[in-house]
Design a protein around this nucleic acid. Structure first.
Lengths: 173, 173
DNA sequence: CCCCAATAGTTAGGCACCTAAGCACAAATA
DNA sequence: TATTTGTGCTTAGGTGCCTAACTATTGGGG
């Protein structure tokens, strides 16, 4: 039988948060803790859903992002630039490019200017893949936030940005 | 030199979304696409930040969640139950328990009722670890959403829940 | 009473991500 | 010019997560 992780991991409840805080005699605000926990849970689920989404096309989130970034940049970019714009390590880019190259969606060429550098180029098949993906992809992206009105989306975007900003501040310590 | 993936992956911009939609002549709403893209990016970043956070204590998000769930359940639970309440596959639970067992935070015992079953129990060291973690953990969780007022947090929680609900609807097709 | 389907858990293999360490080449400096 | 320092990319090894394919054991229906 197939294993379906689906089936909602009983998202953390307010009571659960309260209980945990009480157990250690801490002075945290349960509502804040709940929001944070839900956000983290949502992040994980959205990430997995994205993986499933791209999986339908034989890609993954990381591979798609690399492809899209490449196209957005004229179809040619160095691994370092890709790592920077995708926000992942160069080692990860090596892995992503390995996979995409194996499928013929991308190719590596030695850099003309820099003897130790590479350039990753989008192949015709890679461009085709993006074209093939686009309609379903954008439809789905839109549907993800389709339950919110335009104003709500704007509010959400603002709140999300502030949370991310706060997180960045925390990360560096 | 150390590689610091930090350095913000130029979060997708509205223009970028517009450009991509235009390139394929699609009729998607750029704002909606932008919100969805930002949400996915934020999810990934929050997930990574959480990993760093727990890494400071020699744990990971998954291992911590398992430990916390175990404690919340009296310190004893079967792998299947853990998989269900954490929302991950049984195979993943096997991996998490392997790791936690190696560190002595958890132990496996054959189930008394079911000959093929196991029971995972929280050891004294595991309980200590949770106690040690708690203050920093809850402080951090709270700080994550500290940039929002109580009302804003409530709004955020509502919007987030609706997005997740919409996503669940999409997932099953 | 025995067989066979359902269930518990593990193993095997895949992908994304990371850090740390290595090799190649470039640029700056003595 | 020769050497050191920095940079570009890959490799090696680790974690988490997944699906699919076992192995054991349970328990219901012929």
């Amino acid at each position: 039988m197939t294993q379906h992780p689906e089936g909602g991991p009983t998202a953390p409840s307010l009571d659960q948060a309260r209980r945990q805080i009480a157990r250690y005699g801490l002075a945290a605000d349960p509502q804040a803790v709940l929001v944070a926990a839900r956000l983290m849970a949502a992040g994980a689920r959205i990430g997995q859903a994205g993986e499933v989404h791209f999986g339908r096309f034989g890609l993954s989130t990381g591979r798609y992002r690399l492809l899209a970034d490449l196209e957005d940049h004229g179809g040619e970019k160095s691994p370092s630039q890709l790592a920077a714009s995708l926000g992942v390590s160069r080692a990860t880019v090596t892995g992503l490019v390995d996979g995409l190259e194996r499928e013929g969606l991308v190719a590596r060429r030695p850099s003309a200017e820099d003897g130790r550098g590479n350039v990753v180029i989008l192949t015709a098949r890679g461009a085709d893949k993006l074209r093939e993906l686009a309609p379903a992809h954008f439809t789905r992206m839109q549907a993800l936030v389709g339950g919110l009105s335009v104003e709500e989306r704007a509010t959400f975007l603002d709140l999300l940005a502030r949370v991310v900003a706060g997180m960045d501040a925390l990360t560096e310590d």
